[in-house]
Design a binder for these strands. Structure first.
Lengths: 339, 339
DNA sequence: TATGAATATGAAAACGATTTCATTCGTTTC
DNA sequence: GAAACGAATGAAATCGTTTTCATATTCATA
């Protein structure tokens, strides 16, 4: 309610001086500073954000694009991003694209209308050439997603390596018939993991068998369904690589219910290292993703880009994944952890 | 980059007319309207949000306060709230208080500085009297939380009833030694459920036994720990009421690992009806909370309050909970669902 | 003691929209 | 044919800050 003008009137000073006090600028006498501070307190004055944004051409708000927040991986990403943003004095607006290119494009207008200072894309639903024009309005940083065409900073995890170590682990344990489950087809993340999966197979002179491949497998229920599909194959796989712990948990749950033994009848490896991996019995071998570090880096980068105003720079920051060996692949044997 | 002034210059019209076109005001000739639209297109013009916010005294942003987003209950709440907000043309800023009163108070300044038009509190860490002063700057709506002192709209679930039906279900199945696990002590939600728990006991002439009570039990790991505490009691409970599915899952997981049978040795009821309830074996009897409806209502209400500018009104909207009976309380018997 | 630098302050112009109030036309109405 | 009205348009004020520029004062230096 109270404006800077009210404070000026009450103190008998000009708006300029009040502003100097607010922003800790030099050249204000200690006497006046105290006077101003008291008046602000008395009036309950606080600067109006919109006016500041307009004048300073910055909102101190970031937008984070995700498909949907109920996916635990993205919950964790949002949590970490919000904390990192707060550390830099930024608020975080959540944009759930729900896998819709139109919604994504629509949310992009937040950048165009200057409602946010920058966009972190943890989900891409459009081709880069559709997104690129927005770059003239502010920085865009890719986080956990990437696009070869995109000439912007990219913070990502080494998903090829993730697919590789998980698969290699299964191969080392003697499996040769390994099924493959992944989430979104179009997602770069899934594609990278598949490359790593194939790379590991190739090292063992094995080839990718499309009959063992299951795509668009996301949830617990999908895992349960896929389990039955796998068991219906003439040559049943003895191990399965999955793109998420939920799918792994679904497979394990259904397998146990049907009287199969894990890992003796089927070894299962998940992805994400979420809480459920410690819940199932056996616990789930999985791949840990350093989400917090990635989020922190993405925020650091975008804040820097906002300051320097250089948006079109292709920089890649990659974080390693880590295999966490648990019981779903090695049973009750003593198992050593692998890096 | 382009401003309304640029459009005015290009078309040879005044800013006023451009503004009329933007806001679909009457009294603009079709000829000029087209001219303006073309110019806007050509310049890539889009109105600046900060300028609009300043002039219109509204930001079209809501703040949602939650303790932390990785709690699946809150993930779901955020998802639903974001969708509902978008329907009304509002963006959503996420404020994770992480159970800290200071953080909460700090985020409240978003309202004071007019960075948001309203606040939805799905978590309260301060006494109402500390929060109340902010009411002069904009509406506050309580969602899933409540405070008897708070004279603001409150959207909530009937947690007393939730505690009651879950407990009654156990009582009906013959249990008399029922342990009680809850999350945050201070939380009104936990307190209400406890009232319902006690009410059900009372109907069966039973009294609450503090030795069977476990507080501050939140996660899977807490459930595992509590299981051992329960089993260490001289008179072991035969059933347990929990405040969350994760805790229930932790208890079940640990019980099975230690060779106990569920529900024969211990019947378990969870809360929230989350995905893991279908994952464990046995599946988990739980209480479904209509989160989407609640979130939708909270947004509808706050949008209305923003418009009417009447913030201090005590209105209560309550949604019912629903018991979902699964195997963790009735085993493999055929089980009928209860309302 | 005159000169220049450093300190302290304010007036007014931005920032980019919307809105109030005039003003200018045509039309209609009596 | 004058009065009244509605449609179309624009000038200027406004929203609440920050910043530029100018001015006044103090203080040290030659």
């Amino acid at each position: 309610m109270a404006t800077i003008e009210d404070v000026a009137k009450l103190t008998g000073l000009s708006r300029t001086t009040i502003s100097r006090v607010i922003n800790n600028h030099p050249y204000v006498s200690e006497e006046k500073r105290k006077l101003v501070l008291e008046a602000m307190e008395k009036l309950g004055y606080v600067p109006n954000s919109s006016a500041r944004s307009l004048r300073n051409q910055k909102t101190s708000i970031l937008a984070l694009f995700i498909p949907r927040i109920t996916n635990p991986f993205f919950s964790e990403l949002v949590e970490a991003t919000e904390i990192a943003a707060a550390e830099h004095g930024y608020q975080l607006i959540i944009c759930q694209t729900r896998y819709s290119p139109e919604k994504e494009l629509n949310y992009m207008n937040l950048l165009k209308t200057k409602q946010v200072d920058g966009v972190i894309l943890a989900s891409i639903q459009n081709e880069w050439k559709k997104l690129k024009p927005f770059l003239q309005y502010g920085p865009i940083v890719l986080c956990n997603e990437f696009d070869d065409c995109a000439n912007v900073p990219t913070v990502r995890l080494d998903q090829v390596y993730g697919g590789y170590i998980a698969t290699k682990h299964l191969l080392e344990r003697g499996h040769t018939k390994i099924a493959y489950c992944s989430g979104g087809y179009r997602s770069n993340v899934a594609q990278s993991r598949e490359i790593g999966f194939k790379k590991a197979l190739a090292e063992y002179k094995l080839t990718f068998d499309e009959r063992y491949a299951f795509r668009d497998v996301f949830h617990i229920a999908d895992g349960k369904r896929v389990f039955h599909q796998m068991m219906a194959l003439s040559e049943r796989p003895t191990a399965v690589f999955t793109g998420s712990d939920e799918v792994a948990a679904g497979i394990i749950s259904e397998a146990l219910r049907c009287g199969y033994r894990i890992p003796e009848d089927l070894a299962v490896v998940g992805f994400d290292n979420q809480a459920i991996t410690e819940l199932t019995n056996p616990t789930i071998t999985t791949v840990h993703q350093p989400v917090k570090q990635m989020a922190q880096k993405a925020v650091d980068i975008i804040v820097e880009k906002i300051q320097t105003k250089k948006y079109e720079v292709k920089e890649i920051y990659e974080f390693p994944l880590q295999l966490i060996v648990r019981a779903s692949t090695v049973g009750s044997e003593l198992h050593e952890s692998e890096a």
